[in-house]
Design a protein around this nucleic acid. Structure first.
Lengths: 343, 343
DNA sequence: TTCAAACATGATAGCGCTAACATTGTCAAC
DNA sequence: GTTGACAATGTTAGCGCTATCATGTTTGAA
């Protein structure tokens, strides 16, 4: 006879033996205590504690064909935008039976495909993906995944399944319209990374300026480098070298806006008198900065929360009435775009 | 006869049938292609592609008693410090066979225990935990877990297994000594959250000032609230209400330092002439701020990277020579603590 | 020619758990 | 006292994969 492949670990049947019941009773006691007699329950609980039993998730998943795993793919863990989304996800998942499996795509479609495969091999209960620009392959994987899927960050015309986001194009256009209304006319665009959402913000910028007859492509300064505060400072330098007459900057995100502010201060450029600054996302620092910085408020943790809520509803069979949720945005006008110079 | 509980999914034996080999050969082909003939391999690869086979991780884990899961517990996903650590972890894990399972403890020991149990039920290959102040229960769980464990963020005398970090006390003391050397004498401490690492930084602050005969507890302003830039602004307000004569602030972290800077600018307090500012962690913004802000550089992504590297070594049986790695710190002296007022 | 080593593949038996059905005992209703 | 509804528990057979041992087939050196 072969020797059994036992691991030193305590299993369900060890608990069952110790509590003098069958394995299935222990299984029931753990998952649905109300169907087990108080007497048996007490013995089982004691045995679990005595033996230090920890259930084996792999075996659970295999036997029940279900997992509690919600997979989420985000492009960056350091970008404040995504860490806020992530906080929302964790907040909503907290206290439920689900657990999060996080994947970091690093803004790469190939990484996204690879991670998707890894996630699918866990048979997740639901999936969250960022953006609406999945590769053809990734999209097919998502469509054939037999679990609900939510795309977050953006809304678009063709959801894989569900969506929570907002229109980056509209948000950018509203911000630029605010700058125009404030009296600025040579409004630059400072952008980094240039991922699809950034591209759509650039599009919104162009639309607003074209409509006002103010569009001038030489005011657009972009770089594929990833965004940072110091990069914002450099981008302002690049802009002013080329167009010293620019009178406002619409920054692709708040880090760049803050870098712009610092660089302007360093150059003794009065804000907002000589230069208006508008960011994007409205991170917490924007209102505390001096001068406070105009930005477009987006509902980042809300997107995470709603995504999880929609997912859980769908997993439990209650599909939301509307599969596409637009959380909107708000232009937060502050000192940095108030034309009269500060006291 | 009962009907089999088949899930519509493609399994190993489906692939085996399609490739006209046995299941175990497919298994080998997938895990270790070199032991399978080229001929069989080709047929198997074709079958996998044709059928869209995705292996079932739960079954793999159950049968092999191994997983590729590295679990990491961090107290916050929004705090920049931890997102940098997380980036380091992802960087180091990228390209290996391991995948990360992330848990967010929200600075709660109870949450940490719960997550630890969840993680252990996945039989992870390794674990990363933050800090050295685990609860008694958590510590026991970690000690009895049959996988390597790395504690990160801090070093201390009594590792569960391995450690990567630095001394927060020494780092804070060095920062305060720098302030003293720069000529400041009424040096305040601004602290938020007051988690164990913050407490030890406060201790370092006290030691440095006591040694210089400058310690004065009324200069210590703390709050249990979680840290933010606007909180930094408020803390400076609180300090100045109580001690308008303070001439420098050692901020528990960079967010508070930046908030302090903004608030000082708002109040037209010359930095560094009337007030020196020193932060902690040296986030990227510190050198770009105007004036640039002194801070203590810590090796956040390095901690994440080293933790993963040590873990993987240990998993593969090569335990590192030294289980405790001290990554140190550097005081980055900048404009905000340079006593002569800026031009 | 022979035999062992190396190679390629297969049969079998679990891993630890749960779904599905089966059994037993209890109690109220007729 | 029979019936059936219900509650509590048990038996059995997998879930999809891999460890282990077994078998057949080739190769090359003696």
């Amino acid at each position: 006879m072969r020797k059994p492949r036992r691991s030193g670990k305590v299993t369900l049947s060890d608990v069952a033996a110790a509590a003098d019941v069958s394995a299935i009773t222990v299984s029931r006691a753990l998952r649905n205590p109300s169907v087990v007699s108080d007497d048996a329950l007490a013995r089982i609980e004691k045995a679990v504690a005595d033996l230090g039993y920890v259930p084996n998730l792999a075996a659970q998943a295999l036997a029940s064909k279900r997992t509690n795993v919600i997979g989420a793919l985000i492009p960056s863990v350091t970008n404040n935008v995504f860490s806020d989304v992530l906080r929302g996800i964790y907040d909503a998942i907290h206290g439920t039976r689900f657990q999060l499996q996080l994947g970091n795509t690093r803004y790469s479609a190939m990484e996204e495909e690879k991670l998707l495969l890894t996630f699918l091999s866990q048979r997740p209960a639901g999936l969250i993906v960022s953006g609406i620009d999945q590769s053809r392959t990734a999209r097919t994987l998502l469509e054939t995944a037999d679990c609900p899927v939510v795309q977050i960050m953006e809304t678009g015309p063709d959801p894989v399944d569900m969506m929570v986001g907002f229109s980056h194009l509209d948000a950018a256009r509203a911000a630029v319209e605010h700058l125009i209304a404030a009296g600025y006319s040579r409004i630059a665009f400072l952008g980094a990374r240039m991922d699809p959402r950034t591209q759509r913000r650039l599009q919104g910028y162009r639309q607003a300026l074209e409509q006002a007859g103010l569009h001038d492509e030489s005011l657009v300064v972009t770089t594929p480098q990833s965004s940072s505060i110091s990069l914002g400072a450099h981008l302002l330098g690049d802009l002013l070298a080329r167009r010293p007459d620019a009178d406002a900057v619409f920054c692709n995100n708040d880090d760049i806006a803050l870098g712009t502010l610092f660089e302007a201060q360093r150059r003794r450029i009065p804000i907002p008198g000589a230069l208006g600054i508008c960011g994007f996302n409205d991170l917490e620092m924007m209102q505390t900065a001096w001068p406070s910085l105009t930005s477009v408020r987006t509902h980042r943790s809300g997107m995470g929360q709603d995504a999880v809520a929609m997912l859980i509803s769908a997993i439990e069979g209650r599909r939301p009435d509307n599969p596409v949720v637009d959380l909107g945005f708000e232009v937060m006008a502050r000192e940095s775009t108030r034309r009269s110079p500060m006291a």
